[in-house]
Amino acid sequence: MAAAPIITSRDVHLYYGKHEALKGIDLDFNPQQITALIGPSGSGKSTYLRLLNRMNDLIPNIKITGDIRLYQQDIYASDMDIVQLRKEVGMVFQQPHPFPFSIYDNVVYGLRLAGIKDRAVLDQAVETSLKAAAVWTETKDILHESALALSGGQRQRVCIARVLAVKPAVILLDEPTSALDPISSSKIEQMLVDLKKDYTIIMVTHNLQQAARASDKTAFFLDGQLVELNDTVNFFTAPAKKESEDYISGRFG
């Protein structure tokens, strides 16, 4: 039996104005696992992912109901500190865009926000994070050059290192490889598998093979609902639901 779930969500609804984008999601995430969220465009999987570190808060006319907990703490409680939440739940976006600073400044950005100035601590964090993001060998000699000079795959790994430096418990990835070439993608996939012993990883992906290769659990979203959550092996070999089978065999989506 796996450990207690780190994130739980119960009956999560989300409305953009009158449109109901999420129609009651119950979903838990276990530590040290990669969970892949899959589903066609507009199925609500990215919207759901962004709920987990409250990235949707700034969108106007949005209404969120339900209960999402991290370590049993309701993250939408009124006394929840959103800055602290985002330090625990890091996020990597689809487009590989580091800040227009040096690689070093990118990685230590979150630490500097927290007021850490000790050079030795920062240096150490840069090395550890870049190593964990599997981009240290390519960048160790050019740490003080602009991160924008790197290739797309390297940039995305710097973005991941930037998140790792803050030492979150959970890492959310929103289609992290969809803007990258296959070789860069597979490097990032491999890296995520290596990272999961220390983190809880939740990844939205459009790439079914990627979900099948890298994840432990797969959650299939369709039309704002969670159709099926299953062990990845079972999901892709013997899906429990008809819609899942249709989707993975390419009959729609």
Binding site: V83, G110, C159
Partner: peptide, 20 residues
């Protein structure tokens, strides 16, 4: 995406404006 990434790393709005 600069603003989003900064917020996702735990920056307040002022920190995002000032630093990014």
């Amino acid at each position: 995406y600069y603003r989003d990434a900064s917020a996702a790393l735990g920056a307040t709005r002022w920190q995002t404006i000032y630093k990014v």
